[in-house]
Amino acid sequence: MNRISPDIIWQAMIETVYMVSVSLLIGTLLGLPLALLLVLTRPNGIKENKIAYFILNSMINIIRSLPFIILLVAIVPFTRLIVGKTYGTEAAIVPLIIYIAPFIARLVETSLLEVNPGIIELAKSLGAKPLQIVRHFLIPEALASIILTLTTATIGLIGATAMAGTVGGGGIGNLAISYGYQRFNTFVIILTVVILIIIVQIIQTLGSYLAKKIRHQ
């Protein structure tokens, strides 16, 4: 079977968009608070807490050091617990979230640390409480950088979804591997790569545009 129908491609695109958007959304919801905790509890942070920082920091490092394909298999029991099955698109989303949340946490942490220390000093001089510092000073000042960070995370996720085929996740990347690579169909490989390039270009352009708009430059 060398021919590939537009339906299959369309279906794969839907699967990719579905996996990426759900795991990006939940990954961000988990990653942002983690990043804030890292920044607040770090040595000389606004709410310095050595133990909390150490635990959080090590956990993120451990998860981030696992190759995605290993993580995917290793957490199968956990996946079953959460979504009730170990195969299919939903089953792929669980490891994708666990993969991307610490990645987002680390990248957003960097964005937050880049905020001019003078701004934190200003916030303290105005008597702002820690939550006010986060809301009125840290996040607005880091927002443009956070958007670029999330753009990077999204593109990283698209790469990771290709491996989601292992647990039947589907998607464009899976199409490239199962229809193209494993069946020696060069056309499918080229087609899927072109589609991926276009998606990545669109996401990056959108991210850069938004960041630029927020920076007021």
């Binding site: 001019n116 003078g118 701004i119 000093e121 200003l122 001089s125 105005l126 008597g127 702002a128 006010q132 009125h136 000073f137 607005p140 000042e141 927002l143 443009a144 927020i214 920076r215 007021h216």
Partner: peptide, 29 residues
């Protein structure tokens, strides 16, 4: 602290906010 204000060598203005919002910030808090 609210009776004491401070100005800085490098101004410490929020780049993400316009002049009005920068000045409004202490009142918003």
């Amino acid at each position: 602290k609210k009776k004491i204000s401070m100005i800085f060598q490098h101004f410490n203005l929020l780049e993400s906010k316009n002049v009005f919002d920068n000045v409004a910030l202490p009142l918003k808090l």
